[in-house]
Nucleic acid binder design. Sequence first.
DNA 1: AACTGAAACAACCGCACAAAG
DNA 2: CCTTTGTGCGGTTGTTTCAGT
Length: 266
Amino acid sequence: MEKEEVRKGPWAEEEDVQLVFYVNLFGDRRWDFVAKVSGLKRTGKSCRLRWVNYLHPGLKRGKMTPNEERLVVELQSKWGNRWSRIARRLPGRTDNEIKNYWRTHMRKKAQERKKNKKVSSSSSSSSSISSSSSFSNSSSPSAPSSPRPGVPALAKGKGAGAEGERSFYDTGGVELPATTDTRVEKNKTVVLEVEEGNKVYSMDDLWKEFEFPEENCGLTTQAVASPIWDYCPTDSLWSMSEEERQLQPVCDNHFQSFPFYNYMIG
DNA sequence: AACTGAAACAACCGCACAAAG
DNA sequence: CCTTTGTGCGGTTGTTTCAGT
């Protein structure tokens, strides 16, 4: 009946590392393939989701800026719940994130509306709360709302500069459109040195890098890209053909420990 | 200090569409 | 042209953390 158990639920750090590695190799298109080859017991769908919502370089984390909030409200009223479309206008934000944001804020608004109704019905007869979309105000831009550690030690996308107008979805994968400098992170040297020297980095370690924005000040949209990218080879890999990759594993130690290695040679 | 509700975030599910065979 | 497969999207649910009482 069950062919292979499919893992569900929260992703482990190793899984993240593994996924990033393989996405680096094969791009972010063939998710089924990536899922299979990586040995992750996840569906391609699940891998894609994890990538898009969490691991993607260029993801901005942390609270929405007032600007972004305004934009979301504006675009939502214009396009409806086309979250992915809206997300494209908000570099670094995912449709999921926006969706969640909207949901909580709709709830808030609904509550406010209820309150107002009660008040207005008891006091006067004016309606008016309806389409006013008082979001930009109600979202209290100044509300500090302490950063949520909901995400393991990495949701601190504080100093994310909201610059750049490009869908972060187009990581391009192998067939990256040679438009602009799609990914700043790619220029960073490192080779999936999750184990650098003799030190082994956990995902937390990797993420921590981003708690010090000064170190990334040269970056714009990608400023808070998933730090794991720092540890992944990119350019070299992107430009390699599949065959080349087979012949020339990037970092042997790791490489061989990944199921992919067996897959390729076997 | 313990409890409870709300908020934020992560992940899954099902459907629709597009491309490949 | 039809079928299959993969991907993207929107909706929904579950989990964790925080703030207020």
